[in-house]
Amino acid sequence: MTPEVRAVLARHGAVLDESGFDPRADVARDAWRACAADLHATGARFFDITAIDRGEAVELVLVLVDTPSTQFTLRTSCPNESLRAESLAGVFPPAEWGEREVFDLFGVVFEGNPDMTRILQPDSSTIHPLRRSFELEERTW
């Protein structure tokens, strides 16, 4: 992790944890977009945006590559009562599709995304399948 990235994370009050495989930084949901924009300014490259269902909250995971050989994750948590976050589509262009996928599969609404519609499932679908609360039907045979 480069010193510039550390400085940005410290400025946005991120909780840094380097005990795992990759360094992870947890930010508050209010600082999500601002922190990502500052990280983009340091030259960090977008790798992936996804989510993990933690039961009472959905954890958004943004994987960024700071030097060609190292990566770190920026995370924030959306409680089930308000599944909303600010969109990063204006910061990282590929995040637009990544966010649409998170919306389709988890139901997190990204405010400011230019096209917040389902991307993988048909438009008629009513489910967000990757939530823990959605269970696959038993097969009948």
Binding site: F47, T50, I52, V61, V63, P93, P94, W97
Partner: peptide
């Protein structure tokens, strides 16, 4: 990206597909 909750089944299995983002360009 794989996440485990300490059981025999994954908590999350995520594939960051290269062409998904290539196509988004």
């Amino acid at each position: 990206l794989v996440a485990s909750d300490g059981t025999t089944k994954p908590l999350r299995f995520r594939v960051r597909s290269p062409i998904f983002y290539n196509l988004s360009a």
